[in-house]
Design a protein around this nucleic acid. Structure first.
Lengths: 340, 340
DNA sequence: CTCGGGTTCTGAACCGTTACGGTTCCTCCA
DNA sequence: TGGAGGAACCGTAACGGTTCAGAACCCGAG
């Protein structure tokens, strides 16, 4: 029976024909994929875990690029790609247990997320991406610290010493407003934390007291969030000359807010982003470009390429500082000479 | 054993604890999802078939919106969403057979696609979307004909009688160039065909000889394609006063081309799109908005809501003509009075 | 005619779970 | 105290394939 479908060479053509014939007559719909998977121990699909509100994955152009790359890698290997339903609110870890997949890609999930823990319990390979490296797990990501330090150096070089920062959510709980140094240090979203601490290091080194820098956090990742966060930062310290944003979306929102306030960019206010999404390049934003598609593809390949080696592999992606038209020297020239 | 994990109420807490304890000691990783699926006859996931080059699904903002809606519906139901790896070149129908899913959503797949046939053979519910209705299958989609007729009426009302059309691929084979009436009629991509034939009907009724209308087809769905197609249409008939595009992407490309040629829009050339993607609204494009997210959500819900009723359900989505700043009366005012 | 070797075909075991029915044992009431 | 009624627990039979061992068969060589 099985042979008739899968091993045509193992039996005579005429028997095969006869088998298939009666199978059709009996209304047999072909081998059941689940039973096959059970026996062969292969599900033929990889799972993708992203605990963010699912909409995020589709609204953020970077995430969509990642998804595309991952999907392409899966397609190349003839594997399906299963989106695990893991809404942040519902703590429904069961979905992770129920997923019939041969491995997981975990993308930018907070470290303390129960879904992540559930994934790690499953006896299948896992690749984490845009997250801290975990023991014995393959890893893909950019060097966030280095990447944003390039932004910091760029701004410091231009003479900025009084800055504000706009960042995405730092932990699972909602906090729309200033983020204390404490909260920054305890952030459970690795990428945001890495960028903030690297910024803090670099600006501290340039003589800036980081505790005085307004860091405004937003839960939602939208243009509106960016705009309102920019407004809030400017309210906390109207003297800032540069607004460093940890994502392009926030930066584009800030750009809009600056326009509404009649602030010229970069003459009155420098704004930088992070990610290198198409809209950012169109807007001439100073930002860091990261290879989204490649990131997804690398994650997929890592998972699918017979991850035999017992020691984890790390793929670090190159990033590139894009100097656009939204960054320039600060308003009052004298600040340029404030540095050590 | 099973009860310890799934039916805590069926046994005493202390036995349950003991079972779980020894399970952990033996290194038991929890119930196997595939075996569970086999037994319960539920895979806990729905499959999505879109035969387009996968990248299309992630690069087209409309498709991304659809995907988001579908993913949301699945998440609400705690179901996974599996992207079936069905590249158009590789005729690897096996992927459809291997997919462990409880049903399929088929999105904008050409009627003669072997993957579609394979899906129909599987004994699971199927919802088709942006496709012709199939016997006994649930269906979701807009009224493409009515929607584009609104565009046609808008243009006819403005006085346009000499137009060009830009459309997406009509069949699986590549054809970058004019599409004959024959090819239009034989198109295997339902949506494109519906829009073209509806346009033909409407303009014919207004006295336009459709066989003289340049219809330029493009395989790739990009801004560049739109631009080059616009150029080609204008080359075939430099006298056209309006360019009707069957997608916003093509229209935005055409807009760019018009700009490059120094044509004012809409004074020298009217351009219309279709889909209502965010970029189009930003550009002020005259277009038809369709509820992408709702479309995906409806498809998902239809599939998941115990499709018991034996007769197929149809969900027709509302569309809306958005009159933007890219459509106006034709250049030479006299044409306005050519109508009956 | 018998034996060996190859091919084709058949049957049974196994994959890991859940559903189901049977058994035990405890409790409560007459 | 006997019996009814449950609750808790346990054993077993599918679910639908794949795989593999070995039976049956065929054919040519000794």
């Amino acid at each position: 029976m099985s042979n008739a479908y899968n091993r045509p060479d193992q039996l005579s053509p005429e028997l095969r024909k006869r088998v298939l014939e009666t199978a059709r007559r009996l209304g047999y719909p072909g081998p059941d994929p689940v039973a096959r998977s059970l026996r062969t121990r292969k599900a033929g699909a990889v799972g993708l875990l992203l605990t963010e509100n699912l909409s995020y994955a589709f609204r953020d152009p970077g995430a969509v690029g990642f998804l595309e790359g991952l999907a392409l890698a899966c397609e190349d290997a003839g594997q399906g790609l299963t989106l695990i339903p893991a809404s942040p609110e519902r703590e429904d870890v069961a979905a992770v247990h129920r997923a019939g997949v041969d491995g997981f890609v975990v993308y930018s999930v907070p470290e303390d997320d129960p879904h992540l823990a559930a994934v790690l319990e499953r006896p299948v390979p896992v690749v984490v991406c845009d997250q801290p490296r975990l023991d014995n797990l393959d890893w893909v990501g950019p060097d966030d610290r280095k990447a944003i330090k390039a932004v910091a150096d760029h701004l410091i070089g231009l003479g900025h010493r009084r800055i504000g920062v706009l960042c995405m959510r730092l932990a699972r709980g909602r906090n729309d407003g200033p983020a204390t140094v404490q909260r920054q240090a305890n952030a459970s979203f690795h990428v945001q934390k890495a960028r903030l601490t690297a910024l803090a290091e670099e600006f501290s080194e340039a003589g800036v007291d980081w505790t005085t820098v307004p860091v405004v956090e937003r839960f939602d990742h939208t243009l509106n969030s960016g705009a309102s966060a920019a407004a809030q930062a400017l309210e906390i310290d109207p003297e800032i000359t540069a607004l460093v944003c940890t994502s392009d979306i926030l930066a584009l929102g800030a750009l809009r807010e600056a326009g509404n306030r009649g602030l010229r960019v970069p003459e009155d206010l420098t704004i930088t982003g992070f990610d290198g999404i198409p809209d950012a390049e169109r807007a001439g934003l100073t930002t860091v470009r990261q290879p989204w598609l490649e990131k997804g593809r690398a994650a997929g390949r890592l998972l699918l390429e017979t991850a035999e080696p017992s020691r984890p592999r790390h793929i670090q992606l190159e990033t590139q500082l894009i100097t656009g038209s939204t960054s320039g020297p600060p308003r009052s020239g004298e600040e340029f000479w404030f540095g050590p």
